[in-house]
Amino acid sequence: MKFPALLALSVILFFSCAACSLPFGDDPAPSELSILSWNVQNLFDDVSDGGEYEEFDPAEGTWTSAMFQKRLDRIGEIFDDVLESYPDIVLLQEIENLHALQILGEDILKDRYPWLILFEEEDMSVHTAVLSSVPVTSTARLETGYWGRVRLRPIQEIHFDLNGREMILFNNHWKSRSGGSAATEEGRISAAEVLVSRIRSIVRDNPDALILAGGDFNENHDEYKKNGRAYRTALIPVIEDVPEEWSGSLYLCSDGRDAISTEMRLVLYSPWFDSSRAGTYVYKSQWNKIDHFFLWKSLFDGRDYDFAEFDVIRDVPLLNEYNYPARWDSYSEEGYSDHLPILLKIQNNDI
């Protein structure tokens, strides 16, 4: 069943919170928060709704309840056996619908996340989703426009309550590079312009807002350099000398204290500048750093919450014999995802 976005949200919140005790309450704000982002590679349920990719359509006879359950179990295995602990907030990409998210949250992750958020779109086969043990106070869906006739995936905007301190998180899944990086770049630029405009608006009113953007951006943090500076990209290192009219791109710095918002540029911190990890996704035997967290300067000011750690989860179950991501293969019914998860931690300096 398809629900309008706000109704779908209220239904999933009711289902997920009905039997849960909510976190925090009168307790002190947590000393550390962990946030995981993972493109799980097409998690489709076992119900044929008409919008599935052929490989995952039960009506085609190639996708079964047993295979769906195996996908769920594989995700659960990573949470139970690979991660040191369950993250406080989880950003997911490529979830089919609310039904798939609810089963994942309730049956596999055992109701550890009272808040499950996904806005179903009639014209999209997969969606972004958020699972949270941190109280959610409000949500919004940011439309990112079209690439040609193709409607681009909206960005999820989620507001959290850290015992009186608001945190704003954006879950992204930008246009893929299928069809060529240069040919599809306008789709990613369109999403960047929406994200940049929204963050500028927030920090204009509240420069101290805790803001993070995460997800699958389908673009390296240094994509402009990688393409030989041949064309504009959605993500650009702030050190690059580029035309002023490219102000809608998202600029990235290697020191969080240098993050800034002006009419000409929004600059956020990218942990990839300080990471030794090879990447999260492999294409033609080359690692790519296309899964990201971007942070506003308030997470580097020494007050309340500050950036603490960033890492790529690359334990053996997630890697194949070539040490590349062990992507899910429906024919062999093996694998996990073609992306590796990334994990961000922030610490409360006041505790």
Rank of each mutant, 00 (worst) to 15 (best):
S254Y: 04
A59P: 07
T184R: 11
T280K: 08
H221I: 07
A209F: 04
V316T: 14
A209W: 09
I346D: 00
E143M: 13
S197P: 00
M124L: 10
F15Y: 11
F217Y: 11
D241S: 13
S48F: 10
M67S: 14
I75P: 08
R177S: 11
R165K: 13
D111T: 14
S21A: 15
F119C: 13
D26N: 12
E263Q: 12
L43W: 04
I189V: 14
S276C: 06
V196E: 08
G228K: 02
D27V: 10
A29D: 03
S337K: 03
D205P: 01
K284R: 15
L344R: 00
D291G: 02
L318S: 08
E240K: 09
P341C: 03
Q156Y: 06
P207V: 02
D88H: 04
E121P: 04
D26I: 13
N39G: 04
L118M: 01
Y53C: 09
T262L: 01
L116Q: 15
D329G: 07
C253E: 01
F170W: 03
I168V: 12
A140D: 14
Y305W: 11
S178K: 14
Y324E: 15
D304F: 12
A234C: 11
N163H: 07
S138E: 14
P154F: 05
W63A: 09
S37K: 02
A100P: 05
A213E: 08
L13V: 05
S330E: 10
V242P: 04
I199Y: 02
D304T: 13
I95F: 03
A8S: 15
E60T: 15
L6G: 00
W115S: 06
G148Q: 06
D274A: 13
F44Y: 11
E219N: 11
P317H: 07
L118H: 03
A209L: 03
